[in-house]
Nucleic acid binder design. Structure first.
Lengths: 194, 194
DNA sequence: ATCCTATATATGATTAATCATATACTAGCA
DNA sequence: TGCTAGTATATGATTAATCATATATAGGAT
């Protein structure tokens, strides 16, 4: 008991986006548009990026799965809103998923491939590549700091906020590790004879 | 000039796996089976993981693109081998790709999502989750060290090897950042009242 | 009068990736 | 005898993700 019986058919093991959405809908009811603009883009872009089309299609699947329900709000000045709410089955599924270990995600970084095969390139070309990456990573760290300022600025440290803080700490440290390594790598390549 | 004219149609911007394969074929000619077993699984698993089926399909695409050619080696005791070699057009494409900045890959980590929404869970459940992640990350770091021992043990420091070392350094540091954070996070949660 | 932005949802097309499975022969082991 | 492992390539099915585009209305700026 606790979970629906076997024939799920909907996306087996990870299905992570579905569960991110369940988590967000457990906080409060929302529309697809709210999820995209207020949640994914403004609050958890450091954590999970999602395409608008995929959000709407996942909402459809979650609804036909019985994990969320939909209530259409008629609006006259604007398009109607489909407000989604998590169901009891959805909460059970979320609670189960939250406690399940998932395999480490596969990382595929073009920059590392480039560096791995860069032996044929002149040093300046390699340094240029690393500098562009450095710039992109600095920008990403800045985005993390924006999110930090927006959502973790007030001193009220609820249990939830402490967890959000932990998550953001990792993401920031990850970027910092990258930045440190890039600076070291640039110095190493520069000091090298071609 | 330098690149084939517009109607590529094959996978636009990233197409990274195709370029990893081009890089490996520039080192020497290989079969799909060699690529899977000797390269992806043994040498660059820390860098890029690839499914056997996708390797074969990408070889087909690269061939029809004119970036590699194929020579069938007839074997009588075993299945025939299709030996692939990079072409001049392929080398030009690789050189171009190696110098192009690519957008940062999107990271989607189930564990971070779980922690973000874990406020409803008891501390022990959160700690258990973090400990499982810690174990998986330790194993991954150990895999990096195996690769290090296998491919970077000899003291000959060619230009190529120095680059491979840089790449491995980042991957190891990334895992270490994770491990440090996980230990800190476990201590933090443990010290917390439920 | 025209254009852009915001609100709101939806579909079609395509790519990248994974999983399962099929085929086929050899060699070694139990 | 049957089983497994290694060598070698290939296809079908499916999922996850991205991009482009379509529709519709209101309100503000140029």
């Amino acid at each position: 008991m606790g979970r629906a019986s076997p024939p799920y058919s909907f996306g087996k093991p990870p299905m992570s986006l579905a569960h991110v959405i369940l988590g967000l809908l457990q906080q409060q009811e929302r529309t697809g548009y709210d999820l995209k603009t207020k949640c994914f883009d403004d609050c958890i872009s450091h954590l999970w990026q999602a395409d608008q089309a995929q959000i709407y299609r996942t909402l459809d699947k979650l609804e036909s799965q019985g994990w969320i329900t939909c209530n259409v709000e008629i609006q006259h000045d604007r398009p109607n809103r489909k407000v989604y709410r998590i169901t009891e089955a959805g909460e059970a599924e979320l609670t189960h998923w939250l406690q399940t270990h998932h395999p480490l995600p596969v990382l595929r970084e073009p920059l590392l491939v480039q560096l791995y095969f860069a032996a044929q390139l002149p040093n300046e070309a390699i340094v240029y590549l690393l500098e562009q990456e450095l710039e992109a990573r600095q920008e990403k760290l800045a985005q993390c700091e924006t999110i930090e300022a927006l959502s973790l600025s007030n001193p009220t440290a609820s249990r939830e906020q402490k967890l959000h803080r932990l998550v953001l700490d990792l993401v920031k440290q990850r970027e910092q590790t990258y930045l440190d390594w890039l600076e070291k790598a640039i110095a190493t390549i520069r000091s090298q004879s071609t």
